[in-house]
Write a protein that binds this DNA or RNA. Structure first.
Lengths: 122, 122
DNA sequence: TTCATGCATAGAAAAACCTCTATGCGTACC
DNA sequence: GGTACGCATAGAGGTTTTTCTATGCATGAA
């Protein structure tokens, strides 16, 4: 019964897309609600360990890695690495796919740039 | 005696530049030191209030704003707004310039993208 | 000089965060 | 079935962050 685990993906639209940039404030600034969505993505990147995890996954064979591949490089315990990966998945920066005993994570290439371009539409 | 105040700017290189991307780990991932520098920038973006401040400044007349312009839109006290602006300046995401009684802040357009491209060299 | 304004700093309280140990659940192999 | 492995969750401890009130300093006007 792994269906539940394999669908931890973000699902709902994490960021206001170009066509759905919510209410901009009168002056053209992002709304409070959009700011919260954008900040959630960047907050996930605001920790050195998660930056390293993201980089390690991207540099891995086939662009994916499982928890057990990441524990030793970052030098933290398995539950801690699992916790960080959960945050990255929830932020939409990484996907998770269960294959047998292992959970494989892959980087969502455009997620970061999408968040950035909401702030800097220029 | 405002010299000190007008030079709060980041100064040291906040991010590993393309030509100075420090030691990459054996596999090609960013080093722990680089990860810390990158995370410091994103952490500054990881708060809804600071995202709004950044957006408000960018949407302002002339691309700059002073603290007193920002207090009412974000609905926080002046010391709190000052604190957030300090973090944004220290992260290199915003510049600060003192003009008379006022401190004017402007967005550093490329700072965010620079941080992003260190993680995603692709 | 005196006063008002704009901003920064100091200190404190509450909330959030990072990391650990302990434990539980599902998969694969004997 | 039993055992080993991979990963997630629960709870706790210590640190960091967010926000406030109180206060101080600098500028510009009266």
């Amino acid at each position: 019964m792994l269906e539940r685990m394999t669908t931890i993906s973000p699902a709902r639209p994490l960021l206001p897309t170009k066509n759905s940039v919510g209410q901009r404030e009168p002056g053209g600034a992002v709304s409070a609600a959009d700011a919260e969505a954008i900040a959630r993505v960047f907050k996930a990147l605001g920790d050195p360990t998660r930056v390293r995890l993201l980089s390690l996954i991207g540099a891995s064979e086939g662009g994916e890695a499982c928890i057990c591949d990441l524990i030793e490089p970052v030098g933290l315990t398995q539950p801690t690495v699992s916790h960080h990966m959960k945050l990255l998945v929830e932020a939409g920066l990484v996907t998770r796919e269960q294959r047998g005993k292992w959970a494989y994570f892959a980087v969502v290439e455009d997620a970061m740039m999408a968040a950035a371009s909401v702030i800097c539409p220029g």
